Computed example of a mutant assay.
Amino acid sequence: MSGNHFQEASPSLFRFDPAADDVQPVDLPARGASEPSYIKDHRARLRDRFMQGGAAAMPDYELLELVLFRAVPRQDMKPVARRLLDRFGDFNRVLSAEPARLADVEGVGPAIITELKIVAAAAQRLARSRVIQRPVLTSWAALLDYCHTAMAHGEIEQFRVLYLDRKNVLIADEEQAKGTVDHVPVYPREIVRRALELNASAMILVHNHPSGDPTPSQPDIDMTRRIVQAAETMSITVHDHLIIGKDRELSFRASGLL
């Protein structure tokens, strides 16, 4: 975002213009005029309820409103939150939606998209901090939480590799590829080459199924076997391949596929 030049402007409210990219300003009659009391009171009530009861005390649309408050001041965000949830289904899928699809929703422009992506990145960063540079096999629940946070609600398939050292400490988490709603290209040689660069001794493969069903396809099984074979030639162990669905995951090792 550019911000090289600033100038003082009179206070403004906001309104929707479906033909515009974002919320449009509407000048208030006088400098220093406050936002309408019903909006101010509503925002205060939501913030108080969040601080007292946390996210568990709020439905998705209200939690989403709280996020949108920061992007667009002085406007009722409930209609925008409702439209986002109607389009994407739940709070997590809103945060995970591709920017181009978010922009198709009436009233959603760059400021809102940026705010949503900041929240999504913060959630991933927090979950990642609980597993990076730690022994993965003794913090498996935290690893699964991280994988779900990062991938469970994506609209396209993503393939990640978690690289481990000789003590099974997670030394790198890298997205190898993005694909379509039901396919992602994976290159075993590149995965093994990167493991050698990192001096990794083991790997955990992870990819998501946007359909929500983590059942592996035959191409998933075949691809995993090719990666295992390529890794074995360099004495690198593949501990597991996790497929992340919306509400659960599937482990190749636990399922007898690895």
Rank of each mutant, 00 (worst) to 15 (best):
V26T: 09
R194E: 14
F159E: 11
M77E: 11
I132Y: 05
V228P: 02
S201W: 07
V131I: 15
E175C: 07
V72A: 07
E98W: 02
Q24R: 15
A20F: 09
D27G: 08
N208W: 03
I236W: 09
V238C: 11
D145W: 01
F159K: 00
R31S: 08
P135G: 09
Q7G: 10
M58D: 03
R166F: 12
Y187A: 06
A103P: 00
F159S: 00
R87L: 00
L84K: 06
N92S: 11
S2G: 14
D90T: 01
I191H: 00
G32D: 14
V206P: 00
V206W: 00
P79N: 09
P210H: 09
V184M: 04
G3N: 07
E8A: 13
R248A: 08
E175I: 04
P135W: 02
D145Y: 09
T233S: 14
S235I: 05
T233D: 12
S129W: 00
Q133A: 11
H153T: 06
D173H: 06
K178V: 14
A71E: 01
L170C: 03
V181R: 15
Y187C: 05
D173F: 04
D17G: 00
I191N: 01
P219I: 12
L85W: 06
M223K: 07
H209F: 11
V136R: 01
F6W: 13
